[in-house]
Write a protein that binds this DNA or RNA. Structure first.
Length: 465
RNA sequence: UCCCCAGUAGCUCAGUCGGCAGAGCAGGUGGCUGUUAACCACCGUGUCCGUGGUUCGAGUCCGCGCUGGGGAGCCA
């Protein structure tokens, strides 16, 4: 019969206690150890918070020899009393009555107590959550995920699980990863083309690039819905803002126009920023201190200012009048470049900017055409440092206009039969947007590479871990 | 995919004009100390990314490739 494992108290609870405690059990990993005359200071972290607990190991402990061999990365279970610390730097410390060494990390443990570069840590992505910075980032990621669900729940939205496997390329938001069970060494063919009738689904299949079209069907049934799940893009993008697998939040609202869409997006960003400041103060503090000195300022600005809303046409005029030399020229009808977007939000307005009513030629088929005949009810939210963080639109609810648009863009009409059905039966004005979860995390932490806010990033030529 | 930059010890980096491969940190040993990026002394560490070339001689110069980073495009 196994002995019952001792129940531990997590360090975040422990350090917030008001009074000393005779008996506590702390389990975690050694961050560093400092020897003193007759005893040793051990810094233990268990991932529940940024702070370590300082453990005092007296040389009267029967395994003290072994304790002095504990190096960074080793795992321990400490039983002892919680006492006020006479030293500066921490309120509490644990005076160990016994220390069980669960495992000793050899000196090959790659993490040191000094600072490592993000590039190096990316090569040991399986160990990097054990560092202060990444531990903080992933605690914030978790908190933010929860807050997103709460935001929508509080507002009466239903959470929809849209499919990850998709049957056709009609989503049009990017290159699809193909999914197949065909034997790649012996692909069946017909008239020189691959015969997908032998494939698992009997036709070409891929991983979703967006849950939007599915979410629209549910918005037209349940009213206000959202999705929050993984999204896949097989683009050969090599930037600090793109990964092949990322998480996206896509609300979709019935009886909602573009203005209300923008209202919700703005409210949501402010809510999430508030949650992070409130619930992750200590972890955010690390980023404000070591990663981005402007972080608090940026978040405060987001919280306190009304987002500047301008039309695409106004944006182009501002950029033309700016006299700034851009690498790419600004012209009506051309999409805004990263440098243009950043100029608007970072230099001109110095706060989040919503650009809306884009020329229809540069936007997808499903966006609602405006009465001017040349623009669509689209909106992008631009924030400092990141650029585009949200893209959304009012959807085209008029069947004839939508069909004409599909024809105009030479898309396969028959693939959209079910999508068009929603406009055939009880169609109503509706709107939605997509928020890139990782980009939100970058914005709220100051982390400047998207590969560092997702546990195991997938990018071209990189699927390790 | 395009443009630019980089690759030297476990990590971070220096390496002059082409002439014997270096430091700090981490690790080990000893000392000191209610310490806290602890401190002091000593010790070990190399496919200089790979490959081909120029040269008496290449970490250093040239070509090609690989990997990483920054920027651009695609977008979230």
């Amino acid at each position: 019969m196994n002995k019952r494992m001792k129940k531990r108290i997590k360090i975040n609870k422990l350090i917030s206690l008001e009074t000393s405690v005779d008996e506590v059990v702390v389990k975690g990993w050694v961050r560093t150890r400092r020897d003193s005359k007759g005893f040793s200071f051990i810094e233990v972290n268990d991932g529940s918070c940024l702070k370590n607990i300082q453990v005092i190991a007296d040389n009267s402990l029967d395994n003290y020899d072994e304790i002095t061999r504990l190096i960074t990365g080793s795992a321990v279970a400490v039983s002892g009393s919680l006492e006020e610390s006479p030293g500066g730097g921490q309120k509490w410390e644990v005076h160990a009555k016994s220390i069980e060494i669960i495992s000793i990390a050899p000196e090959t443990y790659p993490l040191q107590k000094k600072r490592h570069t993000d590039e190096f840590l990316r090569t040991i992505a399986h160990l990097r959550p054990r560092t202060n910075k990444y531990g903080a980032a992933f605690r914030i990621r978790s908190e933010l995920s929860f807050a997103i669900h709460k935001f929508f729940k509080d507002r009466g939205f239903s959470y929809i699980h849209t499919p990850i496997l998709t049957g056709s390329d009609c989503e049009g938001a990017g290159e699809l990863f193909q999914v197949t069970t065909l034997d790649m060494k012996n692909v069946p063919s017909i008239d020189g083309n691959i015969d997908y009738s032998h494939d698992f689904f009997g036709k070409e299949a891929g991983l979703t690039v967006s849950g939007q079209l599915s979410a629209e069907m549910f918005a037209l049934a349940l009213g206000d819905v959202y999705t929050f799940g993984p999204t896949f893009r097989a683009e050969n993008s090599n930037t600090s803002r793109h990964v092949a697998e990322f998480w996206m939040i896509e609300p979709e609202m019935a009886f909602c126009d573009l203005e209300q869409d923008m209202d919700l997006a703005e409210e949501m960003l402010k809510y999430l920023a508030g949650v992070v400041l409130e619930n992750c103060a200590e972890d955010i503090g690390l980023f404000a201190k070591f990663v981005d000195k402007q972080l608090m300022n940026t978040i405060e600005t987001l919280l306190s200012s009304d987002f500047k809303r301008i039309t695409y046409e106004e944006a182009v005029k501002i950029l033309e009048k700016s006299k700034k030399k851009f690498e790419y020229d600004v012209a009506y009808g051309k999409d805004l470049q990263s440098e243009h977007e950043r100029y608007l939000t970072e230099t001109h307005f110095k706060k989040p900017v919503i650009v809306y009513n884009y020329p229809k030629a540069i936007k997808p088929f499903y966006m609602r055409q405006n009465d001017d005949g040349k623009t669509v009810a689209a909106m992008d939210i631009l924030v400092p440092r990141i650029g585009e963080i949200i893209g959304g639109s009012q959807r085209e609810e008029r069947l004839d206009v939508l069909e004409a648009r599909i024809k105009e863009m030479a898309l396969p009409m028959e693939e959209y039969w079910w999508y068009l059905d929603s406009r055939r039966y009880g169609s109503v004005p509706h709107s939605g947007f997509g928020l890139g979860f990782e980009r939100l995390l970058m914005f709220l932490t100051g982390i400047n590479n998207i590969r560092d806010v997702i546990p195991f990033p997938r990018t071209p030529k990189n699927i390790e871990f």
